[in-house]
Design a protein around this nucleic acid. Structure first.
Lengths: 223, 223
DNA sequence: GTACATTTCAAACAGCTGTTTGAAATGGGG
DNA sequence: CCCCATTTCAAACAGCTGTTTGAAATGTAC
């Protein structure tokens, strides 16, 4: 069997299992048996499980990231600063284009991203910021320009809050879809979740800052 | 050695290791060797690792949850509906009171909560909603009253978005503290993060809803 | 068709996991 | 002091993990 066929069979099986059960809870034996290849094939073709995880994500990252970067560049080239909603909306198209690669592409990628940030601490974080740090910096710059009243530290925290929202939602998206469908009779696909996410994130990031005295009063108001 | 001494030594060692490395990546041998007790002690006193995890969380939940419930009840007893900020601010006091139990109590509990939702899928989620579902329902009711313009489905999604923010932030709080201290020279303790979180969450949950046509236009604006 | 490189395969490896066992030690009450 | 329940302990258990090995099979170029 040709090299690339085996590699692809492994990648296809791995991404599905990883998205569903996480990286830690998916064994190489599950992957290789579903891919119908020998157990040793993973180490032969990818070197290690860690490298396989990165390869699974790279398939999507190398498509999404250049598209994102060109969108960021377009906004940065403008004369007047963009609004925060515009900056966030830039993610929609590149993400939904992953459906052309594979029908479930968008969902898989976002679930994998979620797993990557929650499962193994740090490991994937470093991989992404090392390979695509410059792209992410452009995004942060755009956010800073769109919210000139916020300090850099405030933006740092709020972007990580937002990362948490996205990552957690995507990692548990399957369970949330089920609950939403059962309790609220709504069609829940990845596109509709993204639609719900953007206003939430935009409002959170651009929220008015509250000084601590005001907050302490609020916290004690109910006593 | 008396029963309760051994149990407490195990719980103390376990909560620290769990908070730092997560439930899956902390072995019983690490716990028992740090607690200076025999390996079999965990299974003897708690039955299983799963039960130990629940016991670790129960120590804090049984303190926080009744306090939260009485705060919720106080708000529900009012004549006029509370504001969303008031409802969220109610969490501050009960959480910070955990510092009296143990200096690091608040941080530990929130980190454990974060780990619980990200590590093992579902398992802890069910445990909490089974034991404290009625308390959480009161919270959801308060949010609904404070945001009458939002549909229940919208509130469902936005509360889960918020859960993601909290859980993710707390699970990776140690790393975030380090970055914030290094890059922005700011004292980052758990109380200051909570202070930063509340305005973000309040704004996100109460964000104006956007109809999908409007959003599609935004997404295509940069082409 | 022979020679060489690539790929597959079954098997074993070393290491870790949570749990169980049965004997030894310790505890407190009669 | 003895009895009995509780607790500790070292050891082994069965099962899983990622990785390595060396031989067999396959592919490819001459």
């Amino acid at each position: 069997m040709s090299r690339i066929q085996t590699q692809q069979k492994i990648l296809d099986a791995a991404e599905g299992l990883f998205a569903e059960s996480g990286f830690n809870d998916t064994s190489l034996r599950q992957i290789t048996s579903q891919a119908e290849v020998n157990l040793a094939a993973v180490n032969y073709h990818f070197g290690s499980k860690k490298a396989l995880i990165q390869a699974v994500l790279q398939r999507y990252l190398q498509i999404v990231m250049p598209r994102l970067e060109q969108q960021f560049d377009a906004l940065l080239a403008r004369q007047q600063p963009s609004t925060l909603s515009e900056v966030l909306a830039v993610f929609v198209q590149p993400l939904l284009e992953l459906k052309q690669v594979k029908p479930q592409g968008t969902t898989l990628f976002l679930q994998l991203l979620g797993r990557g940030y929650t499962d193994v601490q740090g490991h994937l974080r470093k991989f992404i910021s090392h390979h695509y740090g410059s792209v992410l910096n452009k995004f942060v710059l755009l956010v800073q320009q769109s919210c000139p009243s916020l300090s850099n530290a405030e933006i740092f925290w709020r972007l990580h809050f937002s990362l948490g929202t996205v990552v957690f939602t995507m990692a548990s998206s399957e369970a949330l879809f089920d609950i939403a469908a059962a309790d609220y009779q709504e069609q829940a696909d990845i596109a509709s979740v993204i639609r719900r996410l953007l206003p939430y994130l935009a409002a959170g990031i651009a929220a008015p800052t509250i000084d601590s005295k005001q907050l302490d009063l609020m916290a004690q108001a109910t006593f």
